[in-house]
Nucleic acid binder design. Structure first.
Length: 977
DNA sequence: GTGGTCTCCTA
DNA sequence: GTAGGAGACCACA
């Protein structure tokens, strides 16, 4: 829970009574079970939760819990034995519904909170306080006056039956006193229902008037003798003690010893099937259908859940006989069938290609007045598609040429800022007259960019966000059509064919091919930067991009909700845009001298090996050419060739060369050594210095958020996710990644996160226990498989088990395992068989995952991210098997990726809250995060970092296996890792 | 110059 | 056996 979060607390017990009395009395399902209050409750919850997924309207809960009274006896009975003593038993047909409403809450996957000795109101008060302290806001879903004392700037109430919000003014209007005086008011008036005594003869009006005059109860009681009205004065004096007791009875406890952290109330994606199972059992047909449509679940495939009624037979009404009393909402006609999220989304998509593009309607904005008018229009529509045109693909180096805006489909403009006239040949002519100065333009858009009421829409917004960040413009409240497409369609098409680039999306969804960039700038040697493009063509191109982006958003955004993917997008994608931008912007310091020295060393080593190679080969040739090398080794020298590549060439892979070396051949050994050292030199020590930004003197990688099928990030230019670590030579490169003077690098990495995820999702008791006990997981596996005690286990035995564990994660095959372990395929097969016998749950998980992939075309991570594998249905057995393995791997790799994304999304704020805002997250390497911290902050930062990472799945998912993070600090990445 | 192939670096 | 990016070579334009 953090600033900006919004906690919804539903007063479950209060709701039951109100719903029971408000709804038609005899709502029963077909077997006679009374369910009227349950129906009302479910409808209300669904409606509230729907608003959670529709960020464009109303208040959006991020945390959600339903609170119940535990029993009738509470601490208040100790204060005043008569408290609530005259409560009658609840009506008979309401009794079974108490349990059902708790069941309903659980079916919604919502926390169901109660505590012995405390009323729901006390728990609500306590959680509201905790939320406020965390900087969040609270909405109490109730209209009970007893809760109004809690209302303040950050706590409000909502009456779901009247669809009315209750804030400070509403309390004052209704009771004549502000919320903080509600306790005193209730102490005076008492409550006949709850048997709170109060002072006789004083009702709400009088109480409000007295409090207005005397300020508070204590003052009033102390100065009661001044009151003019005889009876009132006497009663106040006589019943002063009763008033004080009443005050203690109505005062809500904000310090109840609550069991659950507020963070565990974080709203998770809906579990459609679970909820539908319950709703079906309740026979709530309309709501069942709505939920199915919103979550993309198939009602027919889900069985009604077995719902137990705590009170047993007595709870059921008399035999219903001929009564066919339908489910409570079955009477609702199915006339909304045409407006389901899916149908709506599909209808929008179907209509989109018919819309035309008119490039001549685009506007070139060349003065501030016009720009301001466009911004006003954005305020009107609440939408602003935005795109920048620059001189470089690298947002850390790019200079702004102009930007484009679109506020409605077809209404788009380009704002040129630094276009030059092309006519001045060599010198490129001069800057074109009549362009807004960059500073003025940025000043003009700064406010709207930071205004949460206007949604900024981009395509690959990370680029524009980072560029604008560099220019001092902050973007708040945004959507990214590339990320939306990625969440919807990761992996669709064959071999990652589907790109989430704008041109492809435009073709696919709008049936429109935008002007190709190259058409304006040319390509190759003649390519020019965008500021050299004439304004007319620049406007057509740039404004079209903004127009396309806006229309794509209109088509794609509704599809998120229609496919139940809103929370994936909003939890795992959108929040990461600023986080990753900041990481890229910070970059990491790389020591040029170290790399340069290493390059020299490597060059020398390579030259030495080259000479030896030529000696051994008896001729000079291009060692780096596999073709030439193959001819020498397997042709001229006649060495036994191993495998062949798919083009029929001899393979010269490291594996083949190692085998030859092991057989006593000298040359292959030298080739392997040469390759290693030249690889390190060319890919790392030579290339990295070229990526040092001349301005910042640091290396800024670029993370692709939408490039993998599983949800991982990828890193490029340079790829900092493949810096060597396995060999001593390679690790030297890591020593060049350093912290500045006075700072350290901190590396924090998850231990065995994928195996832990596997243990959780496949639900393997032995693995879960091993992780819970902190055992060596590979040794444990070996012990189980080979009946060898962990103590004194030969390293080879453990190594094999380790390879098998990894194999499982990768969707094991006998072929692959045999390759990995250099053992016969039959032996590998036997290992796998044995593994499945020892851990039958793994086999089940794999079979289930494959079946799911085949049935749906996709698999899901534990957070609901989808990875599509359409080719799993291929008739090509090899292709099919490949897709099966990928489908088995994706939920594991993807869930781990989701977890670290969640950690990243929270990290900056956690550090900030701990006073560690100068500890900065720099890099992500799949299961590792690298930070830079001032030396004196390291000790404090490490536990914060570990805590965020280890608890990243919570509260959305409570893993049945602990996550473990190891962190270390040092002067360079090699020592920190 | 562009694209395919091979190889090798990471988790 | 999963997921990536990149450099070198080489054939093609």
């Amino acid at each position: 829970m953090k600033k900006g979060d919004h906690l919804f607390l539903v007063d479950g017990s209060g709701y039951i009574f109100r719903a029971y009395h408000a709804l038609p009395p005899l709502t029963r399902k077909s077997d006679g079970l009374p369910v009227g209050a349950v129906a009302g409750f479910c409808n209300m919850l669904w409606k509230l939760l729907q608003s959670a997924r529709d960020t464009d309207v109303g208040v959006t809960p991020t945390h959600f819990a339903v609170i119940f009274d535990h029993s009738s006896k509470t601490f208040r009975n100790d204060l005043y034995p008569e408290y609530k003593a005259n409560r009658s038993e609840p009506p008979e047909d309401l009794i079974p519904q108490f349990g059902l409403i708790r069941e309903a809450t659980r079916a919604f996957d919502l926390p169901c909170i109660e505590l012995p000795g405390f009323e729901a109101d006390d728990l609500i008060a306590t959680y509201a306080r905790l939320a406020t302290e965390a900087g969040g806001e609270t909405t109490i879903v109730s209209s009970d006056k007893d809760l109004m004392q809690l209302v303040d700037g950050s706590v409000s109430m909502y009456d779901p039956m009247k669809d009315r919000e209750i804030r400070v003014p509403e309390v004052v209007e209704k009771w004549g006193v502000p919320p903080e005086k509600m306790i005193d008011l209730q102490a005076l008036t008492g409550d006949s229902v709850d048997n709170v005594p109060g002072v006789p003869g004083i009702g709400p009006k009088t109480a409000a008037q007295l409090l207005e005059e005397y300020g508070d109860l204590d003052t009033l009681l102390a100065r009661a003798s001044e009151i003019k009205q005889n009876k009132r004065r006497e009663n106040l004096i006589e019943f002063a003690d009763k008033a004080r007791i009443s005050r203690e009875l109505v005062r809500l406890r904000t310090d109840a010893p609550v069991e659950f952290q507020i963070d565990t109330f974080e709203l998770a994606p809906p579990d459609g099937p679970k909820l539908i199972g319950f709703l079906k059992a309740m026979e709530f047909s309309t709501l069942t259908r709505r939920v199915a449509e919103a979550t993309g679940a198939e009602v027919a495939e889900i069985e009604a859940a077995a719902v137990e009624v705590e009170t047993g037979e007595a709870a059921h009404g008399p035999d219903m006989g001929a009564s066919t009393a339908a489910a409570p909402d079955a009477a609702t006609p199915a006339d909304d069938a045409g407006a389901t999220p899916q149908k709506l989304a599909d209808r929008i998509a179907e209509a989109a290609p018919a819309q035309t593009f008119d490039r001549t309607a685009y506007v070139c904005i060349r003065d501030l007045e016009t720009l301001r008018a466009w911004i006003d229009d954005a305020y009107e529509t609440g939408l602003l598609a935005f795109d920048t045109e620059t001189t470089s693909l690298d947002p850390m180096q790019a200079e702004l040429c102009g930007f484009s805006l679109a506020t409605r489909p077809g209404r788009a403009a380009y704002v040129p800022l630094s276009h030059k006239s092309g006519s001045g040949d060599l010198l490129g002519g001069g800057v074109i007259e009549g362009q807004i100065a960059e500073k003025d333009a940025l000043d003009a858009i700064r406010q709207v960019m930071a205004d949460p009421s206007v949604l900024k829409i981009g395509q690959n917004l990370k680029y524009d966000w980072l560029l604008m960040y560099r220019l001092g413009v902050e973007i708040v409240s945004c959507d990214d059509t590339m990320l939306i497409s990625y969440v919807l369609d990761a992996g669709t098409g064959s071999h990652g064919t589907v790109s989430h680039g704008m041109d492809a999306l435009s073709e696919r969804w709008l049936g429109h091919a935008p002007i190709p960039y190259k058409e304006l700038t040319g390509s190759g040697r003649n390519q020019v930067t965008f500021d050299m493009v004439d304004l007319e063509r620049a406007t057509a191109y740039a404004a079209e991009d903004a127009d396309v982006t806006l229309r794509l958003w209109q088509v794609l955004k509704p599809r998120l909700a229609a496919h139940g993917l809103t929370s994936v997008y909003e939890r795992l994608e959108r929040p990461l845009i600023p986080v990753i931008c900041r990481m890229e912007h910070r970059g990491i310091e790389v020591d040029r001298q170290i790399l340069s020295r290493l390059s020299g060393d490597f060059a020398q080593t390579a030259a030495g090996i080259e000479d030896e190679i030529y000696q051994l080969a008896g001729e000079r040739f291009t060692i780096g050419s596999p073709k030439q090398l193959g001819e020498i080794l397997f042709g001229r020298m006649g060495l036994p060739g191993g495998s062949k590549t798919k083009t029929g060439q001899w393979s010269t892979s490291a594996q083949v060369l190692e085998d030859l070396a092991a057989a006593g051949h000298e040359l292959p050994r030298k080739i392997v050594d040469w390759r290693q050292v030249t690889k390190l030199k060319s890919t790392y020590t030579d290339a990295l210095p070229g990526y040092i930004n001349p301005e910042t003197k640091r290396v800024h990688t670029s993370y692709a958020m939408a490039s993998t099928t599983t949800g991982r990030l990828s890193s490029s230019e340079p790829n900092l996710q493949n810096i060597p670590v396995r060999t001593a030579e390679g690790r030297k490169i890591r020593t060049a990644f350093i912290a500045p003077a006075g700072a350290k690098l901190i590396s924090a990495d998850y231990s065995q996160i994928e195996l832990r995820v596997l243990a959780h999702v496949a639900d393997i008791p032995e693995l879960k226990k091993a992780f819970a006990d902190g055992l060596d997981i590979h040794a444990m596996t070996a012990s189980e498989m080979f009946d060898v005690p962990v103590e004194g286990m030969p390293a080879e035995v453990r190594r094999r088990a380790k390879a098998i564990n990894f194999g499982i994660i990768y969707g094991i095959s006998a072929f692959g395992l045999a390759n990995q372990l250099a053992i016969p395929r039959e032996e590998a097969s036997a290992y796998i068989k044995r593994y499945f016998e020892r851990f039958p749950g793994i086999k089940d998980y794999m079979d289930d995952t494959k079946a799911q992939a085949r049935a749906n075309g996709y698999v899901e991570t534990i957070f609901g991210r989808r990875a599509h594998y359409p080719e799993i249905r291929s008739s090509n057995p090899q292709l099919r098997a490949f897709n099966e393995r990928a489908a088995i791997n994706a939920p594991i790799q993807g869930s781990a990726a989701d977890i670290i994304r969640r950690a990243m999304a929270r990290m900056d704020e956690a550090l900030l809250n701990a006073g560690l805002d100068d500890v900065r997250m720099l890099l992500q390497v799949h299961d590792e995060l690298i930070f830079e911290a001032p030396e004196e902050k390291v000790e404090k930062a490490i536990p914060v970092i570990c805590h965020v990472m280890e608890n990243a799945a919570l509260p959305a998912r409570n893993l049945s296996v602990p996550l473990q993070v190891d962190a270390r600090a040092a002067d360079n990445w090699d020592e920190a890792h």
